[in-house]
Amino acid sequence: MLPRWITAFYLAYLAIPIVLLMVGSFGSLWLNTVLPTGFTLAWYADVAADPSFRRAFVASLAVAAIACAACLAVGLPLAYAIFRARSKAIRSLARILYQLPVALPPLVLAFGFILVFSSDTLPWLGSIWLLAAGHIVLGLPYFLQTVVADMQRLGLRVLEDAAESLGSSGWQRFMHVVVPSLRHSILSGLIIVAALSLGEFQFSNLVAGFLNRTYPVVLLQAFYGATGFACAATVVLLLLALAAAVAGGVVSGGGSRLRSVPT
């Protein structure tokens, strides 16, 4: 009975702010009352019409897409190299190194970026590419963790040995065996990276500048305006996060269903 109550309380704790945001985003007036009064869709129309929000929404999607593409291009070979590392010591060291960004606050990364990229030689602060570069650093640990764990679980090394004995070349092994057998973990790793990137505030707020602000950064500005507008703008971000979570759940659920058929 107790676990059920704890679950219920926790769910309520999670849901109440979201529900209040939802309610607020549809309410026309919300001043010194428990719940807002009136019903309107105007706030959503305002958000959709606001050029800085439109711009930030597109920028966020672009940054997330670049971060995902780069994680795939860099992370997959890196994960493979870590998995295939000859000695256990190298594997452990690599793991410590690639997990480091998880423990560091994004603030530290942002300071580093500002120091390096505000100079005259590298004046890239505020560009969309630099934002994406930071998000890669923040997202890569999760991508690597997901993919390396799947490589170990699958026994990828034996699969590759098998493919090699059957006449498969290095490139064929990578394309026929490594990538397809890891497709679930690659996809869920990318979804984590996208979700992190879309919701990231600390780093982006410091590095973004004015031209290419991401959605969460612009969202902060909304709180200085009307409550309904702020709620509606936040719900948009919530929906994005929800989409990522659902996608992640579907991908990993699909993967485990495929693999857990009794033998």
Binding site: G155, V158, A162, L166, H176, S181, R183
Partner: peptide, 26 residues
Amino acid sequence: CGVVFQSYALFPHMRVWENVAYPLRV
């Protein structure tokens, strides 16, 4: 050399016939 492994080492994403046909594919 045809090698049979203790853990079977079948490719999990390929159907049974695709596994058997893999040496022919490459």
